[in-house]
Computed example of a mutant assay.
Amino acid sequence: MSAPDSSGSGRAKAPASASEAPFGAFVRKPSKAAAPAAPNASPDAGPDTQPMRVESPESWPADAVEVGAIVDAYGLKGWVKVAAHADAGHGGDALLSAKRWWLLKGRDANPERRSTPVLQAKIHSDSIVAHLAGVDGRDAAAAMRGCRVYVSRSEFPSLETDEFYWVDLLGLDVVNVAGVALGKVADMIDNGAHSVLRVEYPATGKDGKPVNGERLIPFVGVYVKHVDQAAKQITVDWEADY
């Protein structure tokens, strides 16, 4: 399979020919504009219909990915406004499809942890608005400001075989077509035209001390030849001295 091309924020997709997670790890790069996801309807009866509950580090999902933050109340009936880390319909659709949001507030050693079912979520202008269980009225919604929103990776919308979520590429080994190890994916960058792999590798500084070297490899088919998630490896047409 050839490598993913990119043009937005959400997933990374291979072109037809040639090919607790951090902020910004969640992207989409379709070859054509994706249709907005349908609003999230009230969830079916079951565990995710439980009201808002307090969580602990032990009950927090191991696959939770930060996908946005609550920035304000919306309207008078308890809806909240969310700034998504990826555009709605371009990766931010996980916010629309997830039945439960996991909320983290505070950046000290013991942040407040809660989770709540999503009664309804939809795109509004350049953000997402949602009605969460247990949040009734504007004052209650305003009190949610500053909460970072996480979604379990297992609840992300499914992808086509040639699409990738950035969060799944982080930490993968990068080797070139000659088998030379180039490092590991430390981050993904969106430069507006396409995604870029930021690859770190062990190096030596001018003072002789160990440092992290960096390679920036465009995530496009001319350079990225194969992504093997099972083997945790990306093969690229890129020389070690570039």
Rank of each mutant, 00 (worst) to 15 (best):
P47I: 02
T116V: 07
R148Q: 14
D173W: 03
S56Q: 03
G10K: 08
A69F: 01
S56Y: 00
V224K: 05
R114V: 05
A12L: 15
A14P: 01
E66L: 15
A240D: 04
V118M: 00
A193D: 08
P57L: 02
P39D: 01
G92T: 00
L119V: 01
P47N: 10
V224Q: 07
S31I: 12
V224R: 05
P4V: 13
G205T: 01
W79I: 07
E239H: 09
S9I: 00
L103G: 06
A141G: 03
G68V: 00
V236N: 10
A240G: 00
D72W: 08
H226A: 15
R107G: 06
E214K: 15
A83N: 14
G183N: 13
W60Y: 12
G46C: 05
I189C: 10
G10V: 13
V211W: 03
N191P: 04
N176T: 10
V211M: 10
A3P: 01
E55P: 11
L197A: 12
S127H: 14
P218L: 12
A88I: 12
A186L: 09
D162S: 13
W79G: 09
K206C: 05
K105F: 10
V196W: 02
A142L: 08
V80M: 04
G208N: 11
Q50R: 14
L103Y: 01
A73T: 03
G183Q: 13
T161I: 13
G183F: 13
S152M: 11
S2L: 05
D72M: 05
G221R: 04
N212R: 07
L170C: 02
P157E: 11
M144P: 09
G208L: 08
